[in-house]
Design a protein around this nucleic acid. Structure first.
Lengths: 198, 198
DNA sequence: TTTGTCCTCGGACATTTGTCCTTTTTATTT
DNA sequence: AAATAAAAAGGACAAATGTCCGAGGACAAA
Protein backbone atom coordinates (compact mmCIF):
# COMPACT_ATOMS: atom_id res chain seq x y z
CA UNK A 1 0.00 0.00 0.00
CA UNK A 2 1.27 3.45 -0.82
CA UNK A 3 2.61 5.46 2.04
CA UNK A 4 -0.03 8.16 1.82
CA UNK A 5 -3.08 5.93 1.99
CA UNK A 6 -2.43 4.55 5.43
CA UNK A 7 -4.72 5.56 8.20
CA UNK A 8 -1.98 5.67 10.79
CA UNK A 9 0.72 7.77 9.32
CA UNK A 10 4.42 7.11 9.71
CA UNK A 11 7.74 8.56 8.57
CA UNK A 12 10.45 5.99 8.99
CA UNK A 13 12.95 8.08 7.05
CA UNK A 14 12.82 10.89 9.59
CA UNK A 15 13.00 8.50 12.50
CA UNK A 16 16.06 6.79 11.07
CA UNK A 17 17.76 10.10 10.57
CA UNK A 18 17.08 11.19 14.12
CA UNK A 19 18.60 7.92 15.31
CA UNK A 20 21.70 8.74 13.32
CA UNK A 21 21.89 12.22 14.79
CA UNK A 22 21.52 10.85 18.30
CA UNK A 23 24.34 8.39 17.73
CA UNK A 24 26.52 11.24 16.59
CA UNK A 25 26.13 12.67 20.08
CA UNK A 26 23.95 15.52 18.97
CA UNK A 27 22.04 15.98 22.18
CA UNK A 28 19.08 17.93 20.91
CA UNK A 29 16.58 15.14 21.31
CA UNK A 30 15.21 14.15 24.70
CA UNK A 31 13.08 11.11 25.20
CA UNK A 32 9.76 11.32 26.97
CA UNK A 33 6.95 8.89 27.65
CA UNK A 34 3.22 9.29 27.90
CA UNK A 35 0.37 7.05 28.94
CA UNK A 36 -2.77 6.40 26.90
CA UNK A 37 -5.24 9.31 27.03
CA UNK A 38 -2.59 11.76 28.19
CA UNK A 39 -2.80 15.07 26.44
CA UNK A 40 0.54 16.24 25.11
CA UNK A 41 -0.51 19.37 23.31
CA UNK A 42 -3.64 21.43 23.81
CA UNK A 43 -5.30 23.57 21.21
CA UNK A 44 -4.73 27.33 21.46
CA UNK A 45 -1.77 27.09 23.78
CA UNK A 46 1.84 28.00 23.17
CA UNK A 47 4.67 25.50 23.25
CA UNK A 48 8.41 25.65 22.78
CA UNK A 49 9.19 22.13 21.65
CA UNK A 50 8.61 19.91 18.68
CA UNK A 51 7.82 16.23 19.24
CA UNK A 52 8.60 13.20 17.10
CA UNK A 53 6.97 9.86 17.83
CA UNK A 54 9.44 7.07 18.44
CA UNK A 55 6.88 4.42 19.34
CA UNK A 56 3.10 4.31 19.71
CA UNK A 57 0.05 6.01 18.29
CA UNK A 58 -1.43 9.44 18.99
CA UNK A 59 -4.36 11.36 17.63
CA UNK A 60 -4.28 14.90 16.34
CA UNK A 61 -7.67 16.61 16.61
CA UNK A 62 -9.52 19.89 16.71
CA UNK A 63 -12.31 20.64 19.14
CA UNK A 64 -15.04 23.12 18.31
CA UNK A 65 -17.03 25.30 20.70
CA UNK A 66 -19.66 22.61 21.15
CA UNK A 67 -17.06 20.15 22.31
CA UNK A 68 -17.15 18.15 19.13
CA UNK A 69 -13.83 16.73 18.10
CA UNK A 70 -12.62 16.26 14.61
CA UNK A 71 -9.64 13.98 14.21
CA UNK A 72 -7.15 15.13 11.62
CA UNK A 73 -4.70 12.28 11.65
CA UNK A 74 -3.56 9.30 13.60
CA UNK A 75 0.15 9.72 14.12
CA UNK A 76 2.54 6.78 14.28
CA UNK A 77 6.27 6.26 14.24
CA UNK A 78 8.31 9.15 12.90
CA UNK A 79 5.45 11.62 12.75
CA UNK A 80 6.11 14.95 14.36
CA UNK A 81 3.78 17.43 15.95
CA UNK A 82 4.07 20.94 17.28
CA UNK A 83 6.30 21.90 14.37
CA UNK A 84 3.85 24.02 12.40
CA UNK A 85 3.91 26.67 15.07
CA UNK A 86 7.65 27.10 14.64
CA UNK A 87 6.97 28.47 11.20
CA UNK A 88 3.64 30.18 11.58
CA UNK A 89 4.30 31.63 15.01
CA UNK A 90 0.70 30.88 15.98
CA UNK A 91 -0.70 29.07 18.95
CA UNK A 92 -1.16 25.35 18.61
CA UNK A 93 -3.97 24.75 16.15
CA UNK A 94 -4.77 21.27 17.37
CA UNK A 95 -4.63 18.96 20.37
CA UNK A 96 -2.51 15.84 20.56
CA UNK A 97 -3.45 12.92 22.75
CA UNK A 98 -1.78 9.56 23.23
CA UNK A 99 -3.84 6.56 22.19
CA UNK A 100 -1.34 3.86 23.13
CA UNK A 101 1.68 4.18 25.38
CA UNK A 102 3.89 6.69 23.66
CA UNK A 103 7.62 7.28 23.41
CA UNK A 104 8.61 10.57 21.83
CA UNK A 105 11.65 12.63 21.04
CA UNK A 106 11.35 16.18 22.20
CA UNK A 107 13.42 18.98 20.70
CA UNK A 108 13.32 22.68 21.53
CA UNK A 109 12.29 25.21 18.90
CA UNK A 110 15.80 26.61 19.15
CA UNK A 111 17.51 23.37 18.31
CA UNK A 112 14.89 22.51 15.73
CA UNK A 113 15.55 25.81 13.99
CA UNK A 114 19.27 25.27 14.25
CA UNK A 115 19.01 21.91 12.55
CA UNK A 116 16.75 23.33 9.85
CA UNK A 117 19.31 25.98 9.05
CA UNK A 118 22.46 23.95 9.26
CA UNK A 119 21.48 20.43 8.32
CA UNK A 120 20.30 20.22 4.74
CA UNK A 121 19.22 16.64 5.07
CA UNK A 122 17.08 17.46 8.08
CA UNK A 123 15.65 20.48 6.31
CA UNK A 124 14.66 18.35 3.35
CA UNK A 125 13.05 15.67 5.48
CA UNK A 126 10.92 18.24 7.28
CA UNK A 127 9.88 19.83 3.98
CA UNK A 128 9.03 16.51 2.50
CA UNK A 129 6.97 15.56 5.52
CA UNK A 130 4.94 18.74 5.22
CA UNK A 131 4.39 18.23 1.50
CA UNK A 132 3.18 14.69 2.09
CA UNK A 133 0.89 15.87 4.85
CA UNK A 134 -0.75 18.40 2.57
CA UNK A 135 -1.16 15.83 -0.18
CA UNK A 136 -2.62 13.36 2.28
CA UNK A 137 -5.26 15.60 3.74
CA UNK A 138 -6.68 16.84 0.49
CA UNK A 139 -8.09 13.62 -0.97
CA UNK A 140 -9.11 12.36 2.42
CA UNK A 141 -11.56 15.17 3.02
CA UNK A 142 -12.58 15.24 -0.56
CA UNK A 143 -13.48 11.58 -0.75
CA UNK A 144 -15.20 11.55 2.58
CA UNK A 145 -17.66 13.98 1.16
CA UNK A 146 -18.05 12.35 -2.25
CA UNK A 147 -18.59 8.80 -1.13
CA UNK A 148 -21.04 7.22 1.24
CA UNK A 149 -20.01 6.34 4.75
CA UNK A 150 -20.25 2.68 3.79
CA UNK A 151 -17.66 3.06 1.06
CA UNK A 152 -15.36 4.91 3.38
CA UNK A 153 -15.60 2.27 6.07
CA UNK A 154 -14.90 -0.51 3.62
CA UNK A 155 -11.90 1.41 2.37
CA UNK A 156 -10.65 1.91 5.92
CA UNK A 157 -11.15 -1.71 6.90
CA UNK A 158 -9.31 -2.85 3.84
CA UNK A 159 -6.41 -0.52 4.52
CA UNK A 160 -6.36 -1.29 8.20
CA UNK A 161 -8.15 -4.46 9.30
CA UNK A 162 -7.29 -4.15 13.01
CA UNK A 163 -9.08 -0.81 12.93
CA UNK A 164 -11.72 -1.33 15.57
CA UNK A 165 -9.37 -3.15 17.90
CA UNK A 166 -6.87 -0.34 18.22
CA UNK A 167 -9.03 2.71 17.81
CA UNK A 168 -12.30 3.38 19.57
CA UNK A 169 -15.47 3.74 17.56
CA UNK A 170 -15.91 7.25 18.80
CA UNK A 171 -12.50 8.14 17.42
CA UNK A 172 -13.24 6.50 14.12
CA UNK A 173 -16.47 8.47 13.87
CA UNK A 174 -14.65 11.68 14.71
CA UNK A 175 -12.05 10.84 12.12
CA UNK A 176 -14.72 10.39 9.49
CA UNK A 177 -16.58 13.50 10.55
CA UNK A 178 -19.79 11.62 11.35
CA UNK A 179 -21.71 10.75 14.49
CA UNK A 180 -21.27 7.53 16.35
CA UNK A 181 -24.86 6.67 15.48
CA UNK A 182 -24.17 6.84 11.78
CA UNK A 183 -21.08 4.73 12.14
CA UNK A 184 -22.97 2.05 14.04
CA UNK A 185 -25.76 2.06 11.53
CA UNK A 186 -23.38 1.40 8.68
CA UNK A 187 -21.46 -1.27 10.56
CA UNK A 188 -24.75 -2.99 11.29
CA UNK A 189 -25.71 -2.90 7.64
CA UNK A 190 -22.35 -4.31 6.65
CA UNK A 191 -22.71 -7.16 9.13
CA UNK A 192 -26.14 -8.01 7.78
CA UNK A 193 -24.69 -8.20 4.31
CA UNK A 194 -21.92 -10.50 5.46
CA UNK A 195 -24.35 -12.79 7.26
CA UNK A 196 -26.41 -13.20 4.15
CA UNK A 197 -23.34 -14.25 2.23
CA UNK A 198 -22.06 -16.68 4.83
CA UNK B 1 -9.15 39.56 9.44
CA UNK B 2 -6.44 37.07 10.17
CA UNK B 3 -4.48 35.85 7.21
CA UNK B 4 -5.57 32.28 7.54
CA UNK B 5 -9.31 32.86 7.55
CA UNK B 6 -9.53 34.36 4.11
CA UNK B 7 -11.24 32.40 1.43
CA UNK B 8 -8.87 33.51 -1.29
CA UNK B 9 -5.45 32.89 0.05
CA UNK B 10 -2.47 35.15 -0.51
CA UNK B 11 1.19 35.36 0.45
CA UNK B 12 2.44 38.87 -0.06
CA UNK B 13 5.69 38.14 1.74
CA UNK B 14 6.72 35.55 -0.81
CA UNK B 15 5.68 37.75 -3.71
CA UNK B 16 7.68 40.66 -2.39
CA UNK B 17 10.72 38.48 -2.01
CA UNK B 18 10.46 37.17 -5.54
CA UNK B 19 10.26 40.76 -6.76
CA UNK B 20 13.48 41.46 -4.91
CA UNK B 21 15.18 38.41 -6.42
CA UNK B 22 14.06 39.44 -9.90
CA UNK B 23 15.49 42.93 -9.43
CA UNK B 24 18.79 41.37 -8.42
CA UNK B 25 18.91 39.89 -11.90
CA UNK B 26 18.30 36.39 -10.72
CA UNK B 27 16.70 35.08 -13.84
CA UNK B 28 14.99 32.01 -12.48
CA UNK B 29 11.49 33.36 -12.75
CA UNK B 30 9.68 33.59 -16.06
CA UNK B 31 6.38 35.35 -16.44
CA UNK B 32 3.43 33.65 -18.07
CA UNK B 33 -0.19 34.53 -18.58
CA UNK B 34 -3.35 32.50 -18.68
CA UNK B 35 -6.94 33.20 -19.58
CA UNK B 36 -9.93 32.37 -17.37
CA UNK B 37 -10.81 28.65 -17.45
CA UNK B 38 -7.40 27.66 -18.76
CA UNK B 39 -6.02 24.62 -17.03
CA UNK B 40 -2.46 25.10 -15.87
CA UNK B 41 -1.92 21.84 -14.06
CA UNK B 42 -3.79 18.58 -14.45
CA UNK B 43 -4.18 15.96 -11.80
CA UNK B 44 -2.00 12.87 -12.13
CA UNK B 45 0.43 14.41 -14.59
CA UNK B 46 4.07 15.21 -14.14
CA UNK B 47 5.49 18.73 -14.31
CA UNK B 48 8.89 20.29 -14.00
CA UNK B 49 8.05 23.78 -12.84
CA UNK B 50 6.66 25.52 -9.83
CA UNK B 51 4.27 28.45 -10.32
CA UNK B 52 3.69 31.52 -8.18
CA UNK B 53 0.69 33.75 -8.79
CA UNK B 54 1.60 37.35 -9.48
CA UNK B 55 -1.89 38.56 -10.22
CA UNK B 56 -5.33 36.96 -10.41
CA UNK B 57 -7.22 34.06 -8.89
CA UNK B 58 -7.02 30.33 -9.58
CA UNK B 59 -8.70 27.31 -8.10
CA UNK B 60 -6.99 24.19 -6.87
CA UNK B 61 -9.23 21.14 -7.01
CA UNK B 62 -9.40 17.37 -7.07
CA UNK B 63 -11.67 15.43 -9.40
CA UNK B 64 -12.95 12.00 -8.49
CA UNK B 65 -13.86 9.14 -10.84
CA UNK B 66 -17.43 10.37 -11.14
CA UNK B 67 -16.26 13.74 -12.37
CA UNK B 68 -17.11 15.49 -9.15
CA UNK B 69 -14.73 18.27 -8.24
CA UNK B 70 -13.71 19.23 -4.77
CA UNK B 71 -12.06 22.62 -4.49
CA UNK B 72 -9.21 22.73 -2.02
CA UNK B 73 -8.33 26.38 -2.11
CA UNK B 74 -8.75 29.54 -4.08
CA UNK B 75 -5.29 30.85 -4.76
CA UNK B 76 -4.49 34.55 -4.99
CA UNK B 77 -1.38 36.69 -5.12
CA UNK B 78 1.80 35.04 -3.91
CA UNK B 79 0.35 31.55 -3.66
CA UNK B 80 2.39 28.88 -5.35
CA UNK B 81 1.36 25.60 -6.87
CA UNK B 82 3.13 22.57 -8.24
CA UNK B 83 5.68 22.74 -5.44
CA UNK B 84 4.52 19.77 -3.39
CA UNK B 85 5.66 17.41 -6.10
CA UNK B 86 9.22 18.72 -5.83
CA UNK B 87 9.36 17.21 -2.37
CA UNK B 88 7.16 14.17 -2.64
CA UNK B 89 8.25 13.15 -6.11
CA UNK B 90 4.68 12.19 -6.92
CA UNK B 91 2.50 13.15 -9.82
CA UNK B 92 0.40 16.27 -9.41
CA UNK B 93 -2.24 15.55 -6.83
CA UNK B 94 -4.58 18.29 -7.96
CA UNK B 95 -5.62 20.37 -10.93
CA UNK B 96 -5.17 24.11 -11.18
CA UNK B 97 -7.41 26.29 -13.30
CA UNK B 98 -7.45 30.04 -13.79
CA UNK B 99 -10.61 31.79 -12.63
CA UNK B 100 -9.65 35.32 -13.64
CA UNK B 101 -6.92 36.40 -16.00
CA UNK B 102 -3.74 35.17 -14.43
CA UNK B 103 -0.14 36.31 -14.35
CA UNK B 104 2.28 33.83 -12.87
CA UNK B 105 5.97 33.39 -12.23
CA UNK B 106 7.26 30.07 -13.43
CA UNK B 107 10.45 28.52 -12.06
CA UNK B 108 11.98 25.15 -12.91
CA UNK B 109 12.31 22.45 -10.27
CA UNK B 110 16.07 22.78 -10.68
CA UNK B 111 16.16 26.47 -9.88
CA UNK B 112 13.54 26.06 -7.17
CA UNK B 113 15.71 23.45 -5.50
CA UNK B 114 18.75 25.60 -5.92
CA UNK B 115 17.08 28.49 -4.17
CA UNK B 116 15.82 26.24 -1.39
CA UNK B 117 19.33 25.03 -0.73
CA UNK B 118 21.22 28.27 -1.06
CA UNK B 119 18.80 30.97 -0.02
CA UNK B 120 17.79 30.66 3.61
CA UNK B 121 15.20 33.36 3.36
CA UNK B 122 13.54 31.63 0.43
CA UNK B 123 13.69 28.31 2.22
CA UNK B 124 11.98 29.79 5.23
CA UNK B 125 9.25 31.42 3.22
CA UNK B 126 8.44 28.15 1.48
CA UNK B 127 8.36 26.29 4.79
CA UNK B 128 6.17 28.89 6.34
CA UNK B 129 3.76 28.78 3.43
CA UNK B 130 3.42 25.03 3.79
CA UNK B 131 2.86 25.27 7.53
CA UNK B 132 0.15 27.88 7.04
CA UNK B 133 -1.47 25.76 4.36
CA UNK B 134 -1.70 22.79 6.69
CA UNK B 135 -3.10 24.93 9.47
CA UNK B 136 -5.63 26.44 7.11
CA UNK B 137 -7.02 23.24 5.74
CA UNK B 138 -7.59 21.51 9.03
CA UNK B 139 -10.23 23.74 10.61
CA UNK B 140 -11.88 24.36 7.29
CA UNK B 141 -12.76 20.72 6.76
CA UNK B 142 -13.49 20.24 10.37
CA UNK B 143 -15.96 23.09 10.63
CA UNK B 144 -17.63 22.30 7.38
CA UNK B 145 -18.65 19.01 8.87
CA UNK B 146 -19.61 20.30 12.30
CA UNK B 147 -21.76 23.21 11.29
CA UNK B 148 -24.75 23.51 9.05
CA UNK B 149 -24.37 24.76 5.54
CA UNK B 150 -26.18 27.90 6.59
CA UNK B 151 -23.59 28.72 9.23
CA UNK B 152 -20.81 28.11 6.77
CA UNK B 153 -22.32 30.37 4.16
CA UNK B 154 -22.85 33.16 6.65
CA UNK B 155 -19.24 32.79 7.72
CA UNK B 156 -18.05 32.94 4.14
CA UNK B 157 -20.18 35.95 3.26
CA UNK B 158 -18.91 37.77 6.27
CA UNK B 159 -15.30 37.00 5.44
CA UNK B 160 -15.74 37.72 1.79
CA UNK B 161 -18.81 39.76 0.81
CA UNK B 162 -18.05 39.89 -2.93
CA UNK B 163 -18.12 36.11 -2.88
CA UNK B 164 -20.84 35.43 -5.40
CA UNK B 165 -19.65 38.11 -7.78
CA UNK B 166 -16.19 36.68 -8.32
CA UNK B 167 -16.72 32.98 -7.91
CA UNK B 168 -19.43 30.94 -9.57
CA UNK B 169 -21.99 29.18 -7.44
CA UNK B 170 -20.88 25.84 -8.73
CA UNK B 171 -17.37 26.57 -7.50
CA UNK B 172 -18.62 27.72 -4.13
CA UNK B 173 -20.60 24.52 -3.78
CA UNK B 174 -17.59 22.45 -4.75
CA UNK B 175 -15.52 24.37 -2.26
CA UNK B 176 -17.99 23.58 0.49
CA UNK B 177 -18.30 19.96 -0.54
CA UNK B 178 -22.02 20.21 -1.19
CA UNK B 179 -24.25 20.16 -4.24
CA UNK B 180 -25.36 23.26 -6.06
CA UNK B 181 -28.94 22.38 -5.10
CA UNK B 182 -28.12 22.50 -1.42
CA UNK B 183 -26.32 25.78 -1.79
CA UNK B 184 -29.28 27.35 -3.56
CA UNK B 185 -31.68 26.05 -0.99
CA UNK B 186 -29.76 27.64 1.82
CA UNK B 187 -29.30 30.93 0.00
CA UNK B 188 -33.05 31.01 -0.61
CA UNK B 189 -33.72 30.46 3.05
CA UNK B 190 -31.30 33.22 4.01
CA UNK B 191 -32.99 35.62 1.62
CA UNK B 192 -36.38 34.85 3.10
CA UNK B 193 -35.04 35.62 6.53
CA UNK B 194 -33.61 38.93 5.37
CA UNK B 195 -36.88 39.92 3.73
CA UNK B 196 -38.78 39.34 6.92
CA UNK B 197 -36.42 41.61 8.79
CA UNK B 198 -36.40 44.42 6.23
C1' DT C 1 -26.45 -11.62 44.54
C1' DT C 2 -28.06 -7.09 44.16
C1' DT C 3 -27.72 -2.34 43.13
C1' DG C 4 -26.13 1.47 40.72
C1' DT C 5 -23.24 3.49 37.16
C1' DC C 6 -21.26 3.77 32.81
C1' DC C 7 -21.02 2.58 28.15
C1' DT C 8 -22.60 0.66 23.75
C1' DC C 9 -26.08 -0.25 20.61
C1' DG C 10 -29.99 0.56 18.05
C1' DG C 11 -35.22 2.12 17.34
C1' DA C 12 -38.15 6.00 15.95
C1' DC C 13 -38.60 10.13 14.15
C1' DA C 14 -37.08 14.76 12.26
C1' DT C 15 -34.07 17.16 9.49
C1' DT C 16 -30.82 17.75 6.05
C1' DT C 17 -28.97 16.87 1.78
C1' DG C 18 -28.87 14.72 -2.74
C1' DT C 19 -30.92 13.33 -7.31
C1' DC C 20 -33.49 14.30 -11.09
C1' DC C 21 -35.76 17.30 -13.76
C1' DT C 22 -38.11 21.53 -15.50
C1' DT C 23 -38.30 26.42 -15.77
C1' DT C 24 -36.27 30.91 -15.77
C1' DT C 25 -32.67 34.05 -16.38
C1' DT C 26 -28.48 35.65 -18.29
C1' DA C 27 -24.85 35.77 -21.57
C1' DT C 28 -23.01 34.86 -26.25
C1' DT C 29 -23.15 34.21 -31.09
C1' DT C 30 -25.01 34.76 -35.55
C1' DA D 1 -33.06 41.12 -32.89
C1' DA D 2 -33.22 36.20 -32.96
C1' DA D 3 -31.15 32.00 -31.85
C1' DT D 4 -28.44 29.35 -29.01
C1' DA D 5 -25.94 28.14 -25.28
C1' DA D 6 -24.75 28.47 -20.43
C1' DA D 7 -25.80 29.45 -15.73
C1' DA D 8 -29.02 29.79 -12.02
C1' DA D 9 -33.16 28.58 -9.55
C1' DG D 10 -36.32 25.69 -7.48
C1' DG D 11 -40.13 21.64 -7.16
C1' DA D 12 -40.78 16.82 -5.83
C1' DC D 13 -39.24 12.93 -4.04
C1' DA D 14 -35.66 9.63 -2.13
C1' DA D 15 -31.85 8.69 0.64
C1' DA D 16 -28.64 9.71 4.16
C1' DT D 17 -27.65 11.45 8.53
C1' DG D 18 -28.56 13.46 13.04
C1' DT D 19 -31.08 13.83 17.53
C1' DC D 20 -33.20 11.88 21.23
C1' DC D 21 -33.94 8.32 24.14
C1' DG D 22 -34.50 3.76 26.14
C1' DA D 23 -32.84 -1.25 26.49
C1' DG D 24 -29.38 -4.17 27.74
C1' DG D 25 -24.54 -5.63 29.05
C1' DA D 26 -20.23 -5.05 31.77
C1' DC D 27 -18.28 -3.88 35.87
C1' DA D 28 -17.54 -2.25 40.58
C1' DA D 29 -19.13 -1.59 45.25
C1' DA D 30 -22.14 -3.04 48.86
Amino acid sequence: MSEDKKMIRTDQELLDYIDILCRLDINYFFEERFLPKQKIIEQEKRYTSVFIIKEGIAKCYLSDENGKDFIQEFLGKGMKFGELEVFSGNLSFCSIEAITRLEVYKISYTHFNYLLEHDKRFNRLVMKAMAIKIGYKAPRHSYQQSYTIEDNILKLKKAFPELTEVISKKDIANYMGITLRSLNRVLMKLNEKNNKIN
